[in-house]
Design a protein around this nucleic acid. Sequence first.
DNA 1: GCAAAAGTGTTGTGACTACACCCATGA
DNA 2: TCATGGGTGTAGTCACAACACTTTTGC
Lengths: 247, 247
Amino acid sequence: MISLGRTINPHISVDCVVFGFSTNQLKILLIEREYRDDSGKQARDHKLPGDFITLNEDLDLAAVRTLEELTGLNSIYLHQFAFIGQPERIWKKSDMDWLNTTTGMEIQRVVTAAYFALINITESNSDFAIKNNASWIDIKEVPALAFDHRNIIDRGLAHLQKSLRNEPIGFELLPEKFTIRELQSLYEVILDCNLDNRNFRKKILKSNYLIQLDEKQIGVAHKPAFYYRFDKHIYNKQKKEYLGFNF
Amino acid sequence: MISLGRTINPHISVDCVVFGFSTNQLKILLIEREYRDDSGKQARDHKLPGDFITLNEDLDLAAVRTLEELTGLNSIYLHQFAFIGQPERIWKKSDMDWLNTTTGMEIQRVVTAAYFALINITESNSDFAIKNNASWIDIKEVPALAFDHRNIIDRGLAHLQKSLRNEPIGFELLPEKFTIRELQSLYEVILDCNLDNRNFRKKILKSNYLIQLDEKQIGVAHKPAFYYRFDKHIYNKQKKEYLGFNF
DNA sequence: GCAAAAGTGTTGTGACTACACCCATGA
DNA sequence: TCATGGGTGTAGTCACAACACTTTTGC
């Protein structure tokens, strides 16, 4: 999405790799775009949510703005994870033409700050996104993308996997209350592995920032699972500095 | 250092936090700069090695170039660790004036890619640096700096500590051959803690990429220590993916 | 009562911490 | 021979991996 009607800084952009999780799939938010291919024909493909920053706009805030315009959400987990500036990263003429057309400026070279966001997909923010030509696509079925966005997604995914191993961020992708099994599935899908559920439970419950609620699943054809919630406050309190070094 | 005589991209710069280690101190490479303070008086202070990128220059290569111009070295451990773009990061009028004067351009706002470098300080590269107004300063005695460079250093140091815990990068700061004790001191200084030397040895030698040489210290008034070298090849081979998650 | 997923305990192994003394050298 | 830093071993604790059965519900 390009900011028409704002004064942009045409040298610097933000791009957001937005992850969501639903029906046991890791999904990513992509935007459909219309462009003219090298032969001048109208075509469609997908790109990451992103935008040029405006003059005097803070980078982080530009990323927040981009996502808010797209999902209606403004307090989501969002961090910069890379900054990409190879001169040849926009190598297709059609991509460069598209930038020139949509901005109405002569774009030379764009350096982009890549952001990483985690969203709990709900009906409401999903509807909001659809109105903006955005849609949630399974990470395993990402089509060909504009610019170097495929590369940015791969780096974002690696970042997600690393973060998930080192900090409790999985909750950002789940609703307020969730079952241990849902959490385990999330880990399995993102890390692409199978986890022993006894060991997973022990490990995740030992750190006592998962609070068991009084509520159970209803209407399921098996023993209903308890719901839990993540208590960020407890986590922050007992977050410890790991002092060993293990390589 | 500003590239006079090159065509620069005045929106984007690189800044390098360059660490060195000598006489049991963690040091950082700073450049002395002349400028006019807000009252117009000639003054001196320090800044990080850095530069605007030139048109069509790759960011990573801009960082390599900056350091090569400064130290004569071109194959050093160098990684991007942050990208900083608050509009108010250059808040002092004197700093903005200095940029305008040295570049001969009207600078509006600069977004900078922060790089992190590790160097084994030698007489030769140290002499080279001195010729360029650069000097090695103990990390604990860093004076007031230009721009937001103090902040960048703090973030670089945090990055160094984190990296040192997770990857064997300490060797980059030491000469080719070193004693276990030197390595331990390096860990202690950077992590700001005391380590038990029996446990340190066990841990570091267990991973068998430290090769004991036939050579010992000479001329020391105590039992001479063996020298070791780091074998990157062995490390790369047995580098394992840590699959658990520990938070 | 049966299908389907939830939930639970034990054991072996390996990594970490804490801790104190002898060894080789130069002066 | 003494001062200096190099170099070594053991015991307790804790985290992790591997592994199979009982429980609760809807149909």
